[in-house]
Design a protein around this nucleic acid. Sequence first.
DNA 1: CTTCAATATTGACGTTGTCAAGATATCTAG
DNA 2: CTAGATATCTTGACAACGTCAATATTGAAG
Lengths: 222, 222
Amino acid sequence: MANKATKQHPSRGKAASRPRKRSKAPYHHGDLHEALLKAAERVLERDGLAGLTLRAAAREAGVSHAAPAHHFGDVTGLLSELAAVGFRRFAASLRAAAAKAVPAQGDARLLAIGMAYVAFAREYPGLFMLMFRGDRLDIRRPALEKALQESNMALASAIGELRNEAVIPERPTVAQAAQMVRSWSMVHGFATLLLDRRLDGLLALLPETSADDLLSAMLNAD
Amino acid sequence: MANKATKQHPSRGKAASRPRKRSKAPYHHGDLHEALLKAAERVLERDGLAGLTLRAAAREAGVSHAAPAHHFGDVTGLLSELAAVGFRRFAASLRAAAAKAVPAQGDARLLAIGMAYVAFAREYPGLFMLMFRGDRLDIRRPALEKALQESNMALASAIGELRNEAVIPERPTVAQAAQMVRSWSMVHGFATLLLDRRLDGLLALLPETSADDLLSAMLNAD
DNA sequence: CTTCAATATTGACGTTGTCAAGATATCTAG
DNA sequence: CTAGATATCTTGACAACGTCAATATTGAAG
């Protein structure tokens, strides 16, 4: 902070001079809401969930320790909004994989989607763990609730398409639900066990076999 | 350290007029190590993992705030030892289910073991979540390492028996490992999704269908 | 009984989440 | 253009936490 009177961190180069009216109008910082989420994700992937504190996110973003409270309320709020970011990104990944696998059929589709599911978990391990850490999230937060729904939709339709059912029916049969949960549990269990390093021992017994190889073999063993 | 031998199994019938009632070698408290673990489990199931702090466990056990440090070093130590308790109990549950299902074959066995796996998660939700919270545990702790191995053994042999392979072979084929991981991921994914309340929406679409019913249908859909 | 080491308590320090009050910048009315 | 009004951000405080050092207490060996 150079000079206090002429503080020069307002309006970060609004070159387009666009009249801010839509969604969240940036005031002092520019867009601290977004900046804090990005800072929080950096801290999360760098220091893990234990290192992601309100104050750490504030430090990373270069603001005072209490600034995040105005945007997220409390630490649960920040984590929930960050998880929402994760779910949106996750849904996009699943949709992309499903779109790319359009020509494939049956097991080949499940393989593609399962690989995308696990690939996301490996690419954003901290985010993925946070997303499924129910005890630190407030599921009633609108942003999270919406992102969760989006993610569930993407997953359900991606898996549902396996059986030529574009989306989950209003009244699925138990057998349909079982098939859905079966695919989901399998791939989710694999992802969580992998991130928790619970598969290291088994993988060590399989030289020349990567985690992806094992996942592929698992999904193809029907 | 010199009197470690005396801590092993002193006289069990020392229930005299002393305020000592425990079996191990009691010093000031009696057996604070055990008492703290039990207190910690009570706190965990009552207040969740977030409420389980060193000081909370000390309060629950009625000792000073720094007492746990002498038995567990730091908070990771306490959580790791508690997770070890969980893994031992978990292994016992799996062994019991496997023993009871001896006459059953193939899928019926997988069903019994899978049900036991999920039943444990539902009976001790806090403990189960802690056990798979790798970021808060120190896997190199001897007690945890040993309990983890015991649990893995119980699981591997329980699942391995499905295919008349009493234990994981030294050099399993990728197909064998895939089958093992498949069963494990399926049941573990189901348990975690259930505890994280991620299956509530789907279950709500299935009236008259309990979580156990869904699990059963999932495991039988081969 | 004396001594010693294991056990437990007390007090302190830095960090965290959260709240209240003040400061600052943007918006809007007139 | 000026002056509130309002949203944003900072500062300071407090209790709870993990951890460490110093101290007190107790069981057991010599």
